[in-house]
Structure formats: C-alpha cells, structure tokens
Design a protein around this nucleic acid. Structure first.
Length: 265
DNA sequence: TCCCAGGACAGCA
DNA sequence: TGCTGTCATGGG
C-alpha cells in the first residue's frame, strides 16, 4: 500500500458494476481483485471492508477516470424520480460512468459493433499486446490483414481507415468537446469509418462524458419494447423517445437500464 | 447446428 | 429519406 491509494466508500461504487457494465473492456477479474488498464496506466481494485481500494500511480488521473468528484447518490436519487428506473438503479447501484480516453473509446467501440463482450475484450487485448493502448500512428501502421489476424472480422477496414484519418490529423479528437452533442454525433458518424449512431453515442458518453445521448443497442431495444409494449425496430425513434423521457440524465439512465436488462432479462 | 452479440454500410426504392 | 441484405467471428 502506498499513499497514492484511492479509498472510497462502497455505497456508490461497486467494482463489478463499474467494470462489467459494458462501458470498458481492458480489465481482468482475478481471485482477489480486478486489474484495469487504460492508455499506458494501470490500477488494481479490491474491496476492504466497506471500502474500495484503488491502487494506482496517478491519483489525479484515476480520480477523474472513476468520476469520483461526482455524487452518484444524488444521480441515483434524481434517476429514481424518472419512469421505469427504480429496479435498474437498485440492481446496478454501484455503477459510475467512467471518463475514458476519447481515442481508446473510439477504437474500442468500433470493435464493439455487432459483437459480444468476451470477444471484444480479446480483440482489444491482442491489439494492445500486453502493453499500452496503441496511438493512432501505431494503429495506422498496420494493414487490413493485421486487424483480421487480431480477430476483428469485417471491422478490419474500419480500423485501418479511422486510425489513418486520426493519425494524419484529418479528424480532430479534441474539437468534439466544444461541439453541441447532436452536432458532435453527426460529425463522428460522417467522419469515422465504422462509427454509426449507436457507436457515436457510446463514444460521446464514455469518452466525452456527454449525458444527453442514449446508445440504442439490442438490449436497449428490448428495454424499450418492455416499457412501451411494442416491438419497435426504428432505433432512431427509440433513441429520441428515450432522450425525451430522460433528458440530461439519459446517459446515466441508459447504463443502468442496459446493465439490468443484460444481467436479469 | 443455430441464434445472437453494446451495428455499420452499401444498394436500392 | 427509409428500408433490406450483408458483413466475420465465436460464445452459448
């Protein structure tokens, strides 16, 4: 134990909820702890009594990464006043929305499209090769066959195109922060190969902490059909109706609803 | 063996 | 603009 360790209450922080809720992929569950990597950094998380211990070497970075300056007790109180949220918030009480690196998030969620989480994790692990998450230039140095060999399937060409575009500076990852959310979503879809409406929303939520988005995947489509008792296939319509319902809490609401539906049906 | 997964894309009307 | 078939791969 070093004095860099971050100690937080387990009241609004459950390690399994935070890591297994589908927002992040570079972690490993061990017997006694979880280990997590992001960019070139690493931390270890475990329970100690009613506390969470986060062993790390950059306290400021991980305090922001785990969104520790946001009061999730208040977030959950606000969510529970909104429709259909009670059960999902009770189940995923320890979820927090991470502040992940935008580029790592872009690449990770391009890989996530029409894919399952165990396989997404494996593809990303192979691309990282037990080291730091590669830079855009490093990713751009590989061809389609490399990504195919990493198991990326038909997303191989998306990864080549997008990493090359970002490596040569034709897409500005930072300008997204200054844009209104709707504009940012359109810009992401228009500019980046392999980024459609759902992946763009995940990038904005997990990489830029934009809360006025609602990523609609197969699970959220099922949640929607539960709520409104209709089988709606138009995901754009699902998205706009859910944002209408949850407003600026949409990003939070989506993640609790997703996690609950995926685990409990 | 079959269905499904944190869907995007091209082709077409 | 809105709809449909296709696209790798492997977990369950």
């Amino acid at each position: 134990m070093t004095n860099n360790d971050i100690i937080v209450s387990n009241k609004d922080f459950n390690i399994e909820h935070v890591l297994e809720c589908g927002q992040v992929f570079r972690f490993v569950k061990k017997d006694t702890h979880y280990s997590l990597r992001t960019l070139d950094r690493e931390c270890i998380l475990y329970n100690r009594g009613d506390e969470i211990v986060i062993e790390n070497e950059d306290r400021e970075y991980f305090t922001n990464y785990f969104d520790l300056n946001t009061d999730y007790g208040e977030i959950k109180r606000l969510l529970k006043d909104l429709p259909f949220m009670s059960e999902a918030v009770d189940y995923g009480y320890g979820i927090r929305i991470l502040n992940q690196d935008p580029f790592e998030t872009i690449i990770s969620f391009i890989i996530s499209a029409n894919n399952n989480i165990p396989r997404i994790k494996k593809i990303i692990e192979r691309i990282c090769n037990n080291s730091a998450f590669p830079s855009a230039k490093e990713l751009a140095s590989h061809d389609k066959e490399y990504y195919s060999a990493m198991g990326a399937g038909y997303r191989d060409s998306y990864l080549v195109k997008t990493s090359n575009l970002i490596a040569k500076g034709s897409f500005d990852v930072d300008i997204i922060r200054t844009m209104p959310t709707d504009e940012a979503a359109k810009y992401l879809c228009k500019s980046l190969s392999g980024v459609g409406p759902k992946v763009a929303d995940c990038i904005l939520l997990f990489g830029y902490h934009k809360m006025d988005v609602f990523p609609v995947d197969t699970w959220i489509a099922k949640v929607y059909s539960d709520i409104y008792k209709i089988n709606e296939s138009n995901r754009s319509l699902i998205r706009s109706k859910l944002i209408e319902t949850y407003g600026d809490m949409s990003g939070y609401a989506q993640q609790y609803l997703f996690y609950n539906k995926r685990d409990n049906g």
